[in-house]
Design a protein around this nucleic acid. Structure first.
Lengths: 229, 229
DNA sequence: GACAACCCGATTGTCTGACAAAAGCGAAGA
DNA sequence: TCTTCGCTTTTGTCAGACAATCGGGTTGTC
């Protein structure tokens, strides 16, 4: 009874919250592409709720940076430039290193146990190759990492950054060789944390993000024929 | 003609934005105290706008962490525990150090010039003792620091953290001796940045925040007779 | 043919009024 | 005293309405 799989449809949540999740997912999954306009009435119809709920959900997503609203023109899915992508990965490296360090130095034994389980699950998922299972496993790993850092602000900020990474719309794991490297790097992180080695954990986290950033930014640079005009 | 005092009431902004600012200010100024309930209808009356604008503004503040909403009970001004305050200052130190380092290494000469002007203004304000002038000067300094970091995400996150610090409702500068120290520390930061010394700038930023944190947390610990039940 | 002014449709921003659902509170009853 | 019931308050959500604004197309002029 380790995993408390929180019920998918917790209908108790307010409607607005569900709309938020739906929109977030639509953006993450690429159904709404960066730069695309989001027209209120269309969203009302497709989701089946009133404008109130839609608009309030949009405000939330706007604050998270997933969408950008221009006055009297409405919201569009945020776009992210190459520069911003580089900045995003820089901050991520900074915060995740910190999280890793804190985890290693102050995390509970329980947290460490959970982390290692998440890593094992991720490694398995990487072998069996299930795409959605991989994403789930990686999410679980990061949730655990942020949780273990013991810092609610770090957790919140990293969550936001993770969401925004999806705006780049390239999984950074799709590269054939990358996935194996990724697994190794994550194992390294978990090992350092289990060893209670803060400095090493921070370094491993930073390395992991730097590698992911390199792949992502290279990819962006190559496919940047559509950023000019 | 140095100060371009942007017109107070830029009526072009949407109403919702103005409400956000008003609420943010009310919280920062302590007119709304942590833990206090915010009833929609009261806000409507006191601000003089409809529920729509109020609710959307509240969603924004909620995302920023300034208020916390419980379903079917409405929003309250966020409270912050001692632990969270400590975490907040930790992240602040981390991010501001990073900002200082980046500024020193990559900031433009123009940014550096502006920074030094802001520091001078802050020092003057500290001597003349104008409370609101001090706050303004400090805000200008931090704006410049974040701007100079060249990282929009850092800027955004630090802005959010700065807003939340006000939830602690103790200026951390009110301590008689603290202000002078604060001025010195800030001068140190600016000097390091002007020297293009990244490591030193980072250290100075961290020191500055750590000192502020120490004062703040000591104060919180002393006045924690009202956190039990 | 190019450029400016203008008008019109689409969409947002905002208000009002309405109502179900839930939370909290007080009273009634065991 | 404790539980239960019902009432009040407030939120969550909808529908409809309307002014303001933006963008695009049209018209008119040089």
């Amino acid at each position: 009874m380790g995993d408390m799989d929180l019920q998918i449809a917790r209908q108790s949540a307010t409607l607005r919250t569900q709309v938020e999740d739906k929109l977030r997912q639509a953006i993450s999954s690429g159904r709404f592409k960066p730069g695309q306009r989001l027209v209120e009435r269309e969203l009302c119809e497709s989701i089946g709720v009133g404008r109130t709920s839609i608009r309030e959900a949009l405000r939330q997503l706007e604050a998270e940076g997933l969408i950008t609203s221009y006055p009297h023109r409405g919201p569009v899915v945020s776009t992210i430039t190459y520069e911003e992508a580089a900045q995003l990965y820089s901050v991520r490296a900074l915060l995740e290193s910190y999280a890793g360090k804190e985890f290693a130095e102050n995390g509970t034994a329980q947290d460490i146990h959970t982390l290692n389980e998440a890593v094992a699950e991720f490694a398995e998922a990487a072998e069996s190759g299930g795409g959605s299972r991989l994403i789930k496993a990686k999410t679980a790993f990061y949730d655990c990492l942020m949780q273990g850092s013991g810092n609610v602000f770090v957790k919140q900020m990293l969550t936001s950054l993770h969401n925004r990474v999806t705006l780049l719309r390239m999984t950074s794991m799709t590269q054939p060789g990358r996935l194996n490297h990724s697994v190794e790097e994550i194992k390294e992180i978990a090992a350092a944390i289990t060893d209670r080695n803060g400095a090493k954990a921070a370094a491993a986290c930073k390395y992991h993000i730097d590698m992911a950033a390199k792949v992502a930014l290279d990819y962006l640079r190559k496919t940047s024929e559509n950023d000019g005009d």
